[in-house]
Amino acid sequence: MQKLTVKKYQSKDCSVWNEFVLKNKVATFLFDRDFMEYHSDRFQDFSLMIYKEDELIAIMPANIKDSVLYSHQGLTYGGLITEMTSDTSVLIAIYEVLIAFLNQHDIKTIKIKSLPEFYDRTVNNSNKLLTDNFNATVYQRHKVLAIDFSLPFTIHKTKLKNYRKNQSAGFMIQDDNRFDVFWNKVLIPRLKLKHNTKPVHTLEEIELLHQRFPNQIKQYNIFLNDEILAGITIFDKGNIVKSQYGATTERGEKTRALEYLFIYLTYKFKDEGKRFFSMGTVSDKSNKLGYNPGLLRQKEELGCQMYAQEFLLLETK
């Protein structure tokens, strides 16, 4: 095998990095530097690029904190992103040079937030390679809910009954990307009231990201008599679409507006030929189970199946 080398990402590598992301079948726009850099003030970037001679064959979006390398904490998922042709021997060689490089920089621990398994059919094999060959351990496993449109899916009969009944209720769905209305009138107040927390993205950040990625970040709001009742923020990743945020007002809750919007978008994305509609994780640290069983049931009743997202810990020495 030709010699592999590792280098730390620098701003001058932006175009090379983004070209790799654009051509890769697994990488999504979240790995584009224009997305990653929006919160560069919060994280000390330590993204890595792996070369075979002069050819870039893998990247790892990452940041460093307290001498621990994280597959980037500002992203929902990450890990090593390779060419689709990479076989087991190549992956082992890549991890060997990565570990050697990190040891040179006195980094002894890597925490990897892998892709949910439906994003990449080989992700489970890659994780097993790490546990079998590098003594990595799976320290956390999230439940991620998604609809696979290539398979038959069933929406609960009660939800379908309410959806059909509400088709004549006067709901108006708008996709004009009015993030401000949703953030200020629905998302921020509801998160404050229910969980005493804030959205991960500020309004200014999500509007900036939409400007950078207008075809990938979209806002759908549902109104009744000009009053917003609910909204869903969509991240469109090609074959996979993900509901990044979904929230409803108190009146929207009573009228099942958010449920209506989810079912509307499910049929829309199916008709558009999408492969998966991800409704995100149901993790809940405050619950002794580690997840929210009520939220799990709701998403399953919307047609979702459960998939795993593994978090791995790897000691470099």
Score class of each variant (00 low, 15 high):
R121C: 05
R121V: 13
R121L: 12
R121F: 15
T122N: 13
V123I: 14
V123D: 04
N125T: 15
S126P: 01
N127F: 07
K128T: 14
L129Q: 06
L129N: 06
L130V: 09
L130M: 15
L130N: 09
T131A: 11
F134Y: 11
N135Y: 00
N135H: 06
A136L: 06
T137N: 11
T137M: 06
T137Y: 00
V138H: 02
Y139M: 08
Q140K: 13
Q140H: 07
R141S: 13
R141M: 06
H142S: 12
K143F: 07
L145I: 09
A146S: 14
A146V: 10
I147L: 06
I147H: 09
F149C: 05
F149D: 04
S150V: 07
L151T: 13
P152G: 05
F153M: 10
T154A: 08
T154F: 13
T154E: 11
I155H: 11
H156I: 02
H156Y: 02
H156S: 14
T158Q: 11
L160E: 06
L160F: 02
L160A: 07
L160I: 13
K161V: 10
K161A: 15
K161Q: 14
N162Q: 12
N162S: 10
Y163M: 13
Y163W: 12
R164A: 15
R164H: 13
K165Q: 15
N166L: 12
F171M: 08
F171C: 10
M172L: 14
I173C: 12
I173Q: 10
Q174P: 00
Q174E: 12
D176P: 00
R178P: 00
F179K: 10
D180Y: 02
V181I: 14
F182H: 09
F182Q: 03
W183P: 14
N184T: 03
N184W: 03
N184K: 15
K185L: 01
V186A: 04
I188A: 13
R190Y: 02
L191A: 07
L191I: 03
K192S: 12
K192R: 03
L193E: 14
K194Y: 00
K194D: 01
K194S: 00
K194R: 12
N196T: 04
N196A: 06
N196Q: 07
T197W: 00
T197S: 05
T197D: 03
K198Y: 09
K198L: 08
P199G: 00
P199F: 04
V200M: 05
T202V: 08
T202L: 06
T202H: 06
E204Q: 11
E204F: 00
I206Y: 03
I206F: 01
I206D: 03
E207R: 03
E207G: 03
L209T: 08
H210F: 11
H210M: 12
Q211D: 14
R212A: 13
R212T: 15
F213E: 10
F213H: 11
P214I: 09
P214T: 09
N215C: 13
N215K: 15
N215Q: 15
Q216K: 06
I217K: 01
Q219N: 09
Y220R: 09
Y220P: 04
N221W: 01
N221Y: 01
N221H: 05
I222L: 10
I222Y: 01
F223P: 02
L224R: 12
L224W: 15
N225F: 06
D226V: 04
E227P: 12
E227K: 05
L229G: 00
